[in-house]
Design a protein around this nucleic acid. Structure first.
Ligand SMILES: [Mn+2]
Ligand SMILES: [Mn+2]
Ligand SMILES: [Zn+2]
Ligand SMILES: [Zn+2]
Lengths: 136, 136
DNA sequence: AAGGTTATCGCAACTGTTCGCAATAGTCGG
DNA sequence: CCGACTATTGCGAACAGTTGCGATAACCTT
């Protein structure tokens, strides 16, 4: 059962707009902004509105096909859920960004689960701070 | 040396607008949004523009008098730096919010410092996830 | 293959926040 | 205290993202 069938089983429809959003995210190497996706789609389909892209990212996230992450403060970044999960360190001074394996974050997740019954998604927001070069 | 002198020593000026922002934050019990601050100030000083509030929050942050935190996704929340620091757990399903002591986050901060030379500010963004009731 | 239902669309108006600019008003030295 | 310097202001426009709405088209039933 493919994505289209799965969506129909949930009362949703597979539209050309949705297929295009998934296509762009499949080709993207890293996290992508909604604006990037919209621009990329509009290159070949100028009539497709940015608001449709925003709404579809949310719809696809509800079904679990895409997720978002917050790297810097303002812009939300999207990826397909089937791409590998990882954490981020972002320097608030120089803006540099480093990916980190989830296992570094695991002990904290386990502790929050045990002490607060809280299932943390520690990949959802980047860890903000000062990188080695900027901390001096 | 008070805040005003400190600001002047840094080439900044102490204006009525800045004093009002600090006053509102001093009276506020919890994290406050820029919009709240602006509305509160405009009640008595209608001529003060929201853009001035936004700019002043950034200016005061640069000197270390206020900090901001991201709880849910879009809205930035502000507090005076001299109010007690703490972390947050936010449930992505029901929206509930729980404060947690910084010491829970300390082991991760220490590890990031040791293994990556990264000085993490783990109070900057809330930890997103599922609370006990919503975990299904 | 056709028709009806309604999820989704494009568009335009709207939100919260940022930015450029000319006018204002803190600050400092005399 | 005054005047000069310039950081900061209010304002208008721009910005990314959201929302309401009537038109369109996906898809289910026959
Ligand atoms: Mn931030
Ligand atoms: Mn988020
Ligand atoms: Zn750095
Ligand atoms: Zn919950």
């Amino acid at each position: 059962m493919g994505i289209a069938d799965d969506m129909r089983a949930n009362g949703m429809r597979m539209t050309v707009q949705r297929r295009l959003v998934l296509d762009v995210l499949r080709r993207a190497r890293h996290h992508t902004t909604a604006e990037d996706i919209s621009r990329s789609i509009r290159a070949s389909h100028p009539q497709i509105d940015p608001s449709t892209v925003y709404r579809n990212l949310e719809a696809l996230e509800r079904l679990g096909y895409v997720t978002h992450t917050h790297l810097d403060d303002r812009v939300t970044r999207w990826r397909r859920s089937d791409s590998p999960q990882h954490g981020h360190l972002v320097c608030r001074k120089c803006g540099s960004e480093e990916d980190i394996p989830m296992q570094i974050l695991e002990p904290l997740a386990k502790r929050l689960r045990g002490e607060h019954g809280f299932r943390a998604d520690l990949a959802h927001s980047a860890v903000v701070g000062l990188c080695r070069e900027c901390a001096s």
